[in-house]
Design a protein around this nucleic acid. Structure first.
Lengths: 233, 233
DNA sequence: GCAGCGCGTCAAGAAGACGTCAAGACTGAC
DNA sequence: GTCAGTCTTGACGTCTTCTTGACGCGCTGC
């Protein structure tokens, strides 16, 4: 299984700079998300919850400083500002608005990567000491930080695929997820992988989290469509 | 003004620069500690446990990078490197050695202060767990200052890599660390180093800290993911 | 009734991950 | 130079997990 690195959101409107960043980061295993406007950036940050944000201050729609402030209201991912403006005041403003670092163009790939490592290091420490994020759906508790799953009081051990499946379902609790969506999320490209896989692993998952796997109360089948995790009893 | 602000350790040998920093920081309520050599820096850091360290790379006795690495063994206070060297490689080295930021001379007071605020903000989030030089996880005791490890009453001798591994695991006790994370933390950039290394050294570590290495109680394998140090029974 | 389809279950085997051992390379001390 | 301690690397057996195919059930349309 190829493990993908951290998801990084790039907020940058110049195509040239984006190409540069894509080249610099893509080869290091990062999963890239790209936005060229502030609006798009907020959308992507909300939907994908990236682990790090690279933000160019010069955006067409609105100030990058404001965007920083806006993101910081709910998003804890480190923000590294990239800017052509090298004035001290700009740096101070960005850092005080909530940015974690400030790089002035032009800069080298290696410095960028090193500063990203610093930020990711910080994020990890914060995550470990702060209360870890927990998904709770009815009886089900998923501690994402510790990678632990419990049903009621019972601790449950899951294989990597089962865990991925369950987290995906829990993140979309109540919503129906189609086979196609599940295949894309868990297996990535859907080449050669079939809906049958989903069924097999769902059965395994039911054995672990359901009281009676034959009468599922949590993991519901939506015939002809997909699966759904019940979010309220 | 009553000086009740955070304690900041300044490591700098040029008197002129020290005067500048003293002037820049003193008026902002920081409590200042000053060292002009690496040896002195370690002493002051140990005795006063400052909340932030400003470190000039060009010291008379020894490399600043080494000092950074040495401090990071047990000290979690943010380190901001100040240097006349602006070469990208220097920055990367310092940041990877454990520094949290890198400022190239000349720089403005306001930028320095802003970057210090960022670092202190981070340190605060990480929380009070930062201060203790001793890590305790169940039976396991790691004295970071003395670099000593004990399981129960039994003192344990570890090789450098084993020690690093154990400290990393203990700092994240309870949570699963992926192979990728472990490789990045212990070996730095993961080029050429494989998950196999982790397995070999984990086996060594188990031989030393487990009662029965074949039935690990502390150092648990999470198949397909990584390893975890048990923090509660 | 019965073929066609989607779904759940089971089991076998493949693939890959893991633990262990041991041989060499490398390092710093002497 | 030798020597001890450590790290890397490869080989190999074991175990877990994933894939894949077979089969039975229930539903639907004919």
């Amino acid at each position: 299984m190829t493990e993908t690195g951290p998801a990084v959101l790039i907020v940058e409107d110049e195509p040239q700079m984006r190409r540069f960043l894509r080249a610099a980061l893509g080869s290091h295993g990062f999963k890239l998300l790209e936005a060229s406007t502030a609006r798009e950036a907020v959308q992507l940050a909300t939907s994908h919850n990236p682990e790090l944000i690279l933000l160019d201050l010069g955006l067409p729609d609105g100030d990058g400083i404001d965007l920083t402030r806006q993101l910081r209201e709910w998003c804890t991912a480190p923000i590294i500002v990239i800017s052509a403006r090298g004035r001290e005041e700009d740096k101070v403003q960005a850092l005080d608005a909530g940015a974690d670092d400030y790089l002035t163009k032009p800069f080298g790939t290696n410095e960028l990567l090193a500063r990203m490592r610093v930020s990711l290091r910080h994020a990890q420490q914060v995550g470990s000491s702060a209360a870890s994020p927990i998904l709770q759906v009815g009886e089900l508790r998923i501690d994402l930080g510790r990678r632990e799953v419990a049903v009621g009081d019972r601790q449950v051990r899951l294989t990597p695929i089962e865990y991925k499946l369950l987290v995906y379902l829990a993140r979309n609790a109540g919503r129906v997820l189609t086979h196609r969506q599940i295949l894309a999320e868990i297996w990535g490209s859907t080449h050669g992988v079939q809906a049958h896989h989903v069924r097999v692993h769902m059965a395994e998952l039911r054995k672990r989290i359901e009281v009676d796997p034959a009468q599922p109360k949590l993991l519901l089948t939506e015939p002809g469509v997909g699966y759904r995790l019940r979010d309220r009893s």
